[in-house]
Design a protein around this nucleic acid. Structure first.
Ligand SMILES: [Mn+2]
Ligand SMILES: [Mn+2]
Ligand SMILES: [Zn+2]
Ligand SMILES: [Zn+2]
Lengths: 145, 145
DNA sequence: TCCTTTGTTGCAACGATTTGCATCTACTCT
DNA sequence: AGAGTAGATGCAAATCGTTGCAACAAAGGA
């Protein structure tokens, strides 16, 4: 029994079918250390099953996104990136000057989410935010000129 | 003197040139009531000057974005939307179930920005966020089934 | 006004993602 | 196991946005 079995059940219970392609895409995402582009996933899957089409990858990503098993994030550098939404959520700060990417603990956004829910009644999906801006170093540099 | 004159100065001072095409794109954004897609702007400008190319629109939007005069936001429905960043900022809550879009006051995110700046030293550009989730109505509906 | 510099434009080609459609296959029910 | 159905796949075409390049035009100075 692979570590994907729970996910497979979740998919089946929501009316989706499990196919070898999906299985491979799922495995690729579950075992990735960080962010993957659709092309990354496509390459990995193609190595084992050369007939996959990139549209199948995108369609599977759409399904997984809808079920909130993965996040899709535009981090500024070209293609969208996808990441498994683990139990310990995190977010990113991206510097628009040096393009540096750092982690932001979920606690910062958890407060925002609960405040919105309490005061507006809207339940925000705060899975994986990319917040752009100026990092401390670039802020200093920009100020001194 | 049009209401764009101040913006023109800002652009010139940062080494950019003012062209009729830019002027028209700028006017389109300044006078829009809400969100515009690149295609919307393209159509408007083309009405007055049929030779514009869509790439000029995108390139101008990129410049205006870099100067943070406008925001670019993916609101879930197809193309990216662009909006003038007025002095009174605002954000949006977008329901993933009914696709409803509502306003979110900037105060909610201002706190987040100042906390990140204080504790991490990162200056976040919190201009125009799109926060997805479930609105109060759809939350209720989803719970009762 | 004329010249020089440098950023901008239009066009065409390209890259990323989505979509329509015919075929196929995982799942369910005999 | 066999048949039926709903959903998934592969392929091709379309869409949205980006980029290289040669021609062009603002801005600034002589
Ligand atoms: Mn991440
Ligand atoms: Mn808005
Ligand atoms: Zn930086
Ligand atoms: Zn809703």
């Amino acid at each position: 029994m692979s570590c994907e079995s729970e996910t497979i059940d979740v998919l089946r219970e929501s009316g989706h079918k499990m196919t070898p392609q999906r299985m491979m895409i799922l495995t690729s995402l579950r075992h990735a250390s960080g962010h993957l582009s659709a092309a990354d996933i496509f390459e990995q899957v193609k190595a084992a099953y050369p007939y996959v089409d990139i549209s199948t990858v995108y369609r599977t990503l759409t399904v997984l996104k809808e079920m909130r098993l993965i996040s899709e994030t535009h981090m500024g550098g070209g293609d969208a990136t996808f990441e498994w939404v683990a139990s310990e959520r995190h977010h990113h700060l991206i510097c628009r000057h040096c393009n540096g990417v750092t982690l932001l603990d979920h606690t910062y956004l958890e407060k925002l989410g609960s405040q919105i829910e309490r005061e507006v009644g809207f339940h925000a999906d705060i899975d994986h935010f990319a917040i752009f801006g100026l990092c401390a170093d670039c802020k200093r540099e920009t100020a001194s000129n």
